[in-house]
Design a binder for these strands. Structure first.
Lengths: 260, 260
DNA sequence: CGACCACTTGAGCCCTGTCAAATAGCGTGG
DNA sequence: CCACGCTATTTGACAGGGCTCAAGTGGTCG
């Protein structure tokens, strides 16, 4: 594996402001204080279409509900919830999981600031997975029917929405490839490279970062047990490819990692 | 696994006309003999939105290029091809595959009559997989930019396109679950149940059918080797769950299969 | 400082991949 | 219609990667 980038855009962004305001107030999507501030948001280049006019940008901001804070471990939505909105991660990160009927769960994705969440509900009108914050996070709430309405008028927005959905499709196809054909070491290497690339896109160091997820969550995402993930990290460490201290990761030889 | 259905719709359809006209003429998407005959197509309930007015239906038919015949083994499009159109399978079936850089390939889906192909290209403007006919087949060609234009005017169509894309997303999420958490026997059982359900939706017998794909393709799709697929079929046979003669399949105990 | 959780590491086993050989099935050409 | 050659499938024996179980370490938060 090598080509594990996430989203075509590469506009770098500055440091992301720490989220976490400890109040639990603005939790309802309904109470629409009109207007977000997309035009000044650091994540704009990731979740908004390019080339909107100022007027369109204003309409877009009017449509977006004020951001909601989700603390570490809390869920943004659950499988079966009625699908009303999609969510742009403004700060923090999430995992999405699907639950087997026997209680086993699988992580289907990790979503960083700038990613869009919730498109899994478009087809059936109900969400098909749970989205859970893996650190204190903030999301912008975008009512989907309003977005659809505006898409019928603004071509650039329509195409952007289509690209977002298309991106989700190819993201999953890549993951299927990983799960279907790759060995444990290749999977872990692919995971690290993917994360590295996405952090780079967001203006962070691609070589040194802090994992927000546990070994178990990584393993679930990659289709293996947490012990195996740990062993792979240890092996990479021994081989001088990475330097790990628990959740702190430093990639030492990115090329070798990509060659695995 | 149990809930492995494919698409919410369940309108049954009659027998599908045999495809295969041996001419290789109408191979270019460009030469638009105006008009398809969606309104009389047996697959209409699967690939077209419900509730279009007669006028909208006509516009839709005008937009669709005449169907193209793809013989067994031929490719409809390849990874890297510029994305222009999506395709509705009119008759026959396809596999989609992604190619690893080391030459290994993985099957990412099997697509029956009524399914839509090609949405993998929406994000980047290039297709991200190959689509190959696994029997003589026919597709309707739908230029995507024209579809997008019409979506801006017809809300029902817009929502249908969104549902199609959303469906692709949940289809892949289910497959990820399968690849990430299920054992070989569960995977093969899930595969048979899924296929059975889709055939039923299309008006065929859900209990007895002919596999269009080889053991190797099934294995590639399910993330295992062809020998393992074969062994699972043999085991199911021994246990009285199915009756297999090569590609001919009869499901004897669908509940037991679902309980695996 | 202690409890708890995440992580690491080891030992042994099992499922599935690998390799190999036999059989069945299918299309082609005579 | 049959023989031939090819490919697909089945089945067996064996090996190994990853899982299970278990113990021990480290880090964090009261």
């Amino acid at each position: 594996m090598s080509d594990v980038a996430e989203y075509p855009e590469t506009m770098p962004v500055g440091h992301v402001p720490a989220p976490v305001s400890r109040d639990t107030a603005a939790f309802t999507a309904a109470t629409a204080h009109p207007g977000a501030q997309c035009s000044s948001c650091a994540m704009q280049s990731l979740c908004m279409p390019q080339g909107l006019t100022a007027a369109e940008m204003e309409r877009m901001e009017a449509l977006i509900c004020p951001s909601r804070t989700i603390r570490n471990g809390e869920t943004l939505y659950r499988a079966g919830d009625s699908f009303q909105s999609i969510y742009a991660v403004r700060a923090g990160s999430f995992k999405t999981i699907v639950m087997h009927r026997d209680g086993r769960e699988q992580v289907t994705g990790f979503h960083l600031a700038g990613d869009v969440l919730g498109l899994d509900g478009v087809c059936s009108g109900k969400h098909s997975c749970d989205a859970i914050a893996i650190e204190d996070s903030k999301v912008c709430i975008i009512p989907f029917h309003l977005l659809e309405a505006m898409c019928r008028e603004v071509k650039a927005l329509q195409q952007h929405v289509h690209r977002m959905m298309g991106n989700e499709i190819v993201r999953e196809a890549r993951l299927m490839m990983l799960l279907g054909t790759m060995s444990a070491d290749q999977r872990v290497a692919a995971f690290l490279l993917n994360l590295s690339g996405r952090l780079k896109t967001r203006g962070y160091s691609p070589a040194e970062f802090h994992l927000r997820m546990t070994r178990e969550e990584i393993g679930s995402y990659l289709g293996m047990k947490l012990e195996t993930v740990s062993r792979m990290f240890s092996r990479f460490q021994k081989d001088g490819l990475v330097d790990t201290h628990g959740k702190q990761i430093r990639i030492l030889d990115i090329d070798a990692l990509a060659r695995i």
